[in-house]
Simulated scan of single mutants.
Amino acid sequence: MTDQHNSLAISLFSEIFMADQLARNRLGKALPKGMELSHFSVLNHLMHVSSERSPAQLAKAFSVTRGAMTNTLSKLEAAGHVHIRPDWDDARRKFVAISPSGRRACEAALTAIAPAVASVVGDIGSDKVRSILPVLRELRVRLAEN
């Protein structure tokens, strides 16, 4: 890779890391009291999948350790936002599903963060955001492959 490509790559990832940090900070402040970004992320994911997920599947989807996912799921279960049940075929495994309370909490979180997200998209412009989404998706897919 040439110095020019190295510089471009470093600039790209520096911008992504900074944008990620700023977005997490903004969304974290907008979430309802007591909800963490990790809680919202898991609830939002479960809202959009059609079946239960194992803690291992969730950990893989979020690129976190099983221990970190277990911690998040324990907090969500204590709040009544998820149901965790044993796998009837293999008692060592568990399955996680979002509860009605979790759906309501996720919807409340989406309502709370919508203005912050919409204002950024509005400031940048919908056309610019639409144009960058395919590049960001391809970047995510390529990073996930490695």
Score class of each variant (00 low, 15 high):
48 H>A: 10
55 P>F: 04
55 P>K: 05
51 S>E: 14
54 S>D: 04
49 V>A: 03
49 V>E: 07
39 H>K: 00
45 H>E: 13
54 S>P: 01
50 S>A: 05
70 T>C: 04
41 S>W: 00
44 N>T: 02
69 M>T: 11
72 T>Y: 08
58 L>Q: 02
41 S>G: 09
46 L>S: 04
64 V>W: 03
39 H>I: 00
51 S>V: 09
60 K>F: 06
45 H>Y: 15
67 G>N: 15
63 S>G: 10
43 L>A: 08
45 H>F: 15
45 H>S: 11
69 M>F: 12
49 V>L: 02
57 Q>S: 13
70 T>P: 00
69 M>N: 12
42 V>A: 08
40 F>Q: 00
63 S>L: 12
38 S>R: 13
52 E>S: 12
47 M>P: 05
68 A>V: 11
66 R>E: 10
41 S>D: 14
49 V>R: 08
47 M>K: 15
60 K>C: 02
42 V>G: 00
38 S>T: 14
52 E>D: 06
46 L>W: 04
45 H>C: 12
65 T>E: 03
44 N>P: 03
55 P>Q: 07
59 A>W: 05
56 A>D: 11
69 M>D: 11
61 A>I: 04
54 S>Y: 04
52 E>A: 13
58 L>A: 04
57 Q>F: 01
53 R>A: 12
44 N>V: 00
58 L>T: 02
48 H>T: 10
44 N>M: 04
60 K>W: 01
58 L>F: 04
53 R>S: 14
48 H>G: 11
58 L>Y: 02
38 S>P: 03
38 S>M: 09
42 V>E: 00
64 V>T: 09
48 H>R: 12
54 S>N: 06
50 S>W: 01
45 H>I: 09
38 S>V: 12
39 H>S: 01
59 A>L: 08
64 V>P: 02
45 H>P: 02
38 S>Q: 12
44 N>K: 10
61 A>R: 10
48 H>Q: 12
45 H>D: 06
66 R>K: 13
62 F>G: 04
65 T>F: 01
40 F>L: 04
58 L>G: 01
49 V>T: 13
46 L>Y: 04
70 T>S: 15
50 S>Y: 03
39 H>F: 03
65 T>S: 15
48 H>W: 03
51 S>W: 07
65 T>L: 03
66 R>L: 08
69 M>G: 11
40 F>C: 01
62 F>E: 05
42 V>R: 03
47 M>Q: 15
61 A>N: 07
